[in-house]
């Protein structure tokens, strides 16, 4: 997984654990957490595949733009790998 990632901006129906306010935003992997059962399957009692989970750190400037209280404050969230697009630059 790249250091920098963009959260996929898809809006699938049903139970997902990726907050809408972070979709499309670019952050950095803070740490890798290992693999966890995919909640999108777990919620419907399907056989849940283990998916890699990451803590991703975003700046408030990235998340809220000019409305950020303090652009350098940060927000960390746990995002599954299938929601992340690696950015190589």
């Amino acid at each position: 997984m790249a250091e920098r990632v963009r959260v996929r901006s898809m809006m699938p129906p049903g139970h997902v654990r990726t907050p809408a306010y972070l979709r499309g935003k670019v952050g950095e992997i803070e740490r890798s957490l290992g693999a966890f059962p995919n909640p999108e399957e777990l919620a419907y009692r399907q056989k849940a595949t283990a998916r890699p989970l990451y803590r991703v750190r975003f700046t408030m400037a990235e998340v809220w733009g000019a409305e950020a209280e303090n652009p350098d404050d940060t927000l960390d969230a746990e995002i599954f790998a299938h929601w992340l697009i690696p950015l190589d630059d």
Binding site: R55, T74, A77, E78
Partner: peptide
């Protein structure tokens, strides 16, 4: 103070 960095942690999954 603005010199303190605020880090918000959103418990979105298993942690």
């Amino acid at each position: 103070p603005l010199s303190t960095r605020v880090r918000v942690h959103d418990s979105t999954a298993d942690m």
